[in-house]
Design a binder for these strands. Structure first.
Length: 494
RNA sequence: GGCGGCGUAGCCAAGUGGCUAAGGCGGGGGACUGCAAAUCCCUUAUUCCCCGGUUCGAAUCCGGGCGCCGCCUCCA
């Protein structure tokens, strides 16, 4: 099955053919570490993490690089506000970023370069661009890339440089000779982070770092470059200009861009203030719920975020989780032999589901369709579960088929989609998350809950249902939901 | 204004020329239950923003409207 991907560069669906299989080189733009990551960042991270797992599943040897921007205006401003060194701010938010990634199941990249560790490489690129005549030193000491020298400028974002000039603006004090030119090196002002360079003390502009990271860790041409839709212009356009001006080779063969997260019809962003941080998400929900929400929408479509939708997604998640966890309960039931005259019918559903699942992913990574296929398998599993619970026994054939279905889901939803990792086997969310998930106000410990369940059970046996219901209602108010099953009363958090 | 994208049931969201328009949430009815919860069964769009056109046949292709969003400035 050929993987088809939408390539922003061509604007069409293309067969994915790596330049040097089975190796695949991927670079995605990471975050600027001046504050906690929000759902918008989370989406991009989850999408490309899942995509990487999928490529690995297909048998590719993926080298994945994702950067940290650890010097920039926003970090510097934050440092000024707090009277701290900018590196302290960057280090703090990188640490907090890792907490978030561990929680939402985003695996670390193979290389996670930081700007401050690559200043010589960045300076080298800028110097070469100057030598080749693509960049110039302005009178104020800034270095700019000369957009008009690069004839393909605009090919990614489908923009025409002449039209861009009309809308471009030049800040006072900038030494650009053309409004479209962008800064490669910024002369530092007093008190700002600065590095020695051939053009005096300064710091890199934003767009060069990604080129430097790619060249150093992946090479001159990579297979896939990813990032949010909002990075197409100017960031990725500027990366192409620099890299291709130097090498004359394509910088990235496939450009993948994820759609943005929308809140009440508007893009989630720091400046609009309509953002929800990942930490806020997982104090309220299991991090998998966000992961599931992200994968329930095609990666290129806008994702409308709302708490209502989180609630909805949580129900879907619980449905999946329950189907998987109930294997344990089914195994406790007495079994009997059943003459089916062939394979259990569930096996063909499993096969069909897997075919649909992988076909959907091969068509421009349609995770939402893959998920829909899985939901149909879960319905079939639940029919077996329902029957077994009702009869308080299960045929050995059904149990084996059910287990095969659970294994199939492990293969797809856990290994590729990164869900259910703390269910099978147990692998708890990070300590930080755990702390935030269980606030000190949660006075109900497990022993107390179990005791109340026992008392309720006694009440039920004596038909004192008013007492039994009182216990159930009260626990529900505390966020503990009781379910009476053939295996006794189970409880879970609401 | 330019460029990119979107408009499918109460809601979210698939489907991009042809069997019954996926899947989920919500709603209604039933089974199960002491009652619930969970789960299962049935049900919930004769129709896909509007108007034309192509075609034996269109939600799907073409033309024209209307509406919404993103980018064009830092942004995943």
């Amino acid at each position: 099955m050929t993987l088809k991907l939408f390539n922003t560069l061509s604007g069409t669906l293309e067969d994915f053919v790596p330049s040097n299989p089975p190796k695949v080189k991927i670079y995605t733009c990471g975050v600027t570490v001046y504050d906690d990551s929000h759902v918008g960042h989370g989406r991009s991270l989850i999408v490309f993490d899942t995509f990487r797992r999928y490529l690995e599943h297909l048998g590719y040897k993926v080298k994945f690089v994702r950067n940290f921007t650890d010097v920039d205006d926003k970090i510097i401003n934050r440092a000024k506000q707090e009277c701290k060194h900018f590196m302290e701010i960057a280090d703090r938010y990188i640490a907090r970023y890792y907490e978030d990634m561990e929680s939402i199941g985003v695996k670390p990249a193979d290389v996670e370069p930081r700007v401050t560790d690559h200043i010589p490489e960045i300076i080298d690129i800028i110097q070469k661009l100057i030598d080749k005549g693509y960049a110039y030193v302005a009178p104020n000491g800034d270095v700019y890339f000369s957009v008009e020298k690069f004839k393909d400028y605009g090919k990614l974002s489908k923009r025409n440089p002449e039209e861009l000039i009309a809308g471009a603006r030049v800040e006072p004090g900038e030494g650009k000779s053309n409004p479209l030119d962008f800064a490669l090196w910024k002369r530092s002002k007093a008190g700002e982070p600065a590095w020695e360079s051939p053009w005096g003390e300064g710091r890199p502009g934003w767009h060069t770092e990604c080129v430097a990271f790619v060249f150093k860790h992946l090479g001159e041409t990579i297979d896939i470059h990813g990032g949010g839709l909002d990075l197409i212009f100017p960031h990725h356009e500027n990366e192409i200009a620099q890299a291709e001006a130097l090498t004359g080779k394509p910088f990235a063969r496939y450009w993948m861009h994820n759609g943005l997260v929308i809140v009440n019809g508007q893009k989630m962003s720091k400046s609009l203030g309509n953002f929800v941080t990942l930490k806020e998400i997982y104090t309220k929900y299991h991090p998998d719920v966000l992961r599931l929400l992200v994968l329930s929408v095609h990666y290129r479509s806008p994702l409308d975020f709302s708490w209502e939708k989180m609630e909805n997604t949580k129900k879907v998640y619980e449905r999946i989780r329950q189907a998987v966890e109930d294997l344990k309960l089914l195994k406790e039931l007495p079994t009997f032999e059943e003459d089916l005259g062939g394979l259990h019918p569930l096996y063909s559903v499993i096969k069909e589901t897997e075919e649909k699942f992988f076909k959907a992913l091969s068509e421009d990574f349609k995770t939402q369709e893959a998920l829909a296929a899985t939901m149909e398998l879960i319905s079939e599993m639940n029919k077996i579960r329902n029957e077994a619970f009702k009869n308080k026994k299960i045929s050995r054939q059904s149990l084996e088929a059910y287990e095969a279905a659970v294994n199939s889901i492990k293969n797809t939803l856990r290994n590729i989609f990164g869900l259910l990792e703390d269910v099978l086997p147990r692998c708890p969310v990070s300590q930080v998350v755990k702390r935030e998930l269980e606030p000190a106000s949660a006075v109900l410990d497990e022993d107390l809950i179990n005791l109340l369940i026992e008392v309720r059970q006694m009440a039920r046996q004596k038909k004192a249902f008013d007492i039994a219901d009182k216990i159930r209602d009260s626990l529900k108010e505390k966020g503990i939901v009781l379910e009476d099953t053939p295996f006794g009363t189970k409880w879970k958090k609401a």
